[in-house]
Simulated scan of single mutants.
Amino acid sequence: MQKIKDVMSRDVQVISPDAPITEAARCMRDGDFGMMPVGENDRMVGSISDRDIVVRAVAEGRGVDVKVRDVMSDGIRWAYEDEPVERATAIMGEHQIRRLPIVNRDKRLVGIVALGDLAAKKAKPVQTAKALGEISEHA
């Protein structure tokens, strides 16, 4: 049984909720990823995605000095690194998310898994396809 830790990326960057959204956007551009966990006092407090920036800041005409906390998504979803890959695909499909933070049993952030990671690292194709289908459905 393939574990999440076998397919996740360990190179994950965290951003402060007090950082400006321009910093988050630069990090995403430079790192070629579309979501960052938001951390405060050694705890994940949310996440910010390229979509959050576009929908909640740019489309609303807010300035570049807007803080991450003002546009981030609360209620972050995550999975444990030692869980089966199917657990990650189930969470991603159920909550229509493409990127999922991964924690160890001490609840420390250790990585992130993206839908593309599941496809590229040969997770079960049926599970990956199911997650993609659920993610792609309109809410």
Rank of each mutant, 00 (worst) to 15 (best):
S16K: 08
R69E: 09
K107F: 06
I21W: 03
A114K: 04
L109K: 05
A79Q: 07
E94W: 00
M8E: 09
P17W: 05
D32P: 00
V38D: 02
I76T: 09
D106W: 02
D6R: 02
K67L: 15
E137S: 13
P84C: 10
L109G: 02
S9T: 12
D82W: 08
D18H: 13
K121W: 01
V54C: 15
R98N: 09
T128N: 10
I4A: 10
M35S: 14
N41D: 13
D30N: 11
K121H: 12
H95E: 10
S73K: 07
S47M: 11
A59C: 08
A24P: 04
M36G: 03
E83N: 11
P20V: 13
G93W: 02
G46K: 05
I4K: 07
V55M: 13
R43E: 12
G63Q: 07
S136W: 00
S49Q: 06
V66R: 10
R10G: 15
I21E: 03
P125W: 09
M36S: 07
W78Q: 09
E134S: 04
D50Q: 07
L118D: 10
K121E: 12
A59G: 03
M72I: 03
V66L: 14
Q13I: 11
R87M: 11
M28F: 05
S136G: 12
G46R: 04
A90C: 02
A79I: 07
V14C: 14
G34T: 06
R10K: 15
V38C: 02
P125N: 07
R10C: 09
S9W: 00
I53V: 12
T128Y: 13
N41Q: 11
P125F: 08
I21T: 08
D52H: 07
P37I: 03
P101A: 08
Q13W: 04
V103W: 03
